[in-house]
Amino acid sequence: MRPQRRTIVTTEVNGAPVEALVDVRTTLADFLREEVGCTSVHLGCEHGVCGACTVLLNGLPVRSCLRLAAQAAGHEITTLEGVMQTERGKTIGQVFVEQFAMQCGFCTAGFALSLYHLLERAPEPVTDQDIHETLGGHICRCTGYVSIVEAAKRLRDHRG
C-alpha cells in the first residue's frame, strides 16, 4: 500500500454510480460540483461553519467542504438533486416555496437536506428544540430564519 497523489473514486451519488480520477486533495464539495455536476452544493465558507455545502453521507447530513472526494469511495452521497427525486424532497420544496423560506437561495439546499434528515426520523417525534438544533447549524443571511422555521414546523406537523 502506497500513498497516492491521484486516485480513482468509485462511489454512488444520488443513486447513480460515479467513477472519476481525482487529485487526492480535491474536497468532496468541489468533486460534487465540478465532476458530478451537483451545483446545488454551495460553498459559503469552506471551513465548516455555514452549512451551505451540506450533503447526506449514507443518509446523515455532513459538510462536504470538510471531506475529501477520495473518502467518498464506498459511500452513498445524496445532494438536493437526489432528494428532489423523493416525495419528501418534493414536499419540502413545495413548502419552502410557499413559505418563502428562501430569498437569495444560497443557503437553502443545506437547510433542506438537514431538515430532510430530521423528518426522516419518523416515527420519533420532532420537537421545536430538534428543529432549532438542526437549523442552528446553518447560516442564512437573508431571511432572519423566521420563514425557514415556519416551513420546518409546517413540514413537521404534516409529516406523513
Binding site: G93, F96, G105
Partner: peptide, 15 residues
Amino acid sequence: PSTEGRRLFDLQAQY
C-alpha cells in the same frame, strides 16, 4: 409563491 424558489428546487438555479 416564490418563482425564484421554484427554480432552485427544480435544480435550475444558476449562480
